[in-house]
């Protein structure tokens, strides 16, 4: 699969990443190479194979709805780049 600059821009936007023109060029080549390698999966017929997401048996884990001490509000805010009172502060969301 060959991918072009337009596709790179589309994925960059999905990824919320900004790229310089030079970075876009590099990624066009590198991602094309990687995807070309990944194409080899198409050598295999997987029509009757079930997809596998987890390697061990997993089941839904339920627990009693018991109250446990949470991380305190101060601790939760201490790593935030910007806060106001008891809130996380962000740039304007609604234009």
């Amino acid at each position: 699969m060959k991918i072009d600059k337009k596709t790179i821009e589309y994925i960059a936007n999905l990824s919320r990443i900004e790229l310089s023109n030079q970075e876009k060029e590099t990624f066009v080549h590198q991602l094309s190479d990687i995807l070309a390698y990944i194409e080899k999966l198409n050598q295999l017929n997987t029509q009757d194979i079930k997809p596998m997401a987890y390697s061990i048996n997993t089941t839904n884990v339920l627990r009693d709805d018991k109250l446990e001490p949470p991380i305190s509000r101060e601790d939760a805010l201490v790593n935030a780049p910007s806060t106001m009172g008891v809130f996380f502060k962000v740039p304007k969301v609604i234009e």
């Binding site: 790179i8 994925i11 999905l14 990824s15 991602l31 999966l41 997987t46 194979i49």
Partner: peptide, 25 residues
Amino acid sequence: MLGNYALSSGYYDAYYMKASKVRNL
């Protein structure tokens, strides 16, 4: 970027689903 591409609309089956099946093999 590679991960988002493999999960993006139109490519999910070709990449992520295909890989999950081969993982089973």
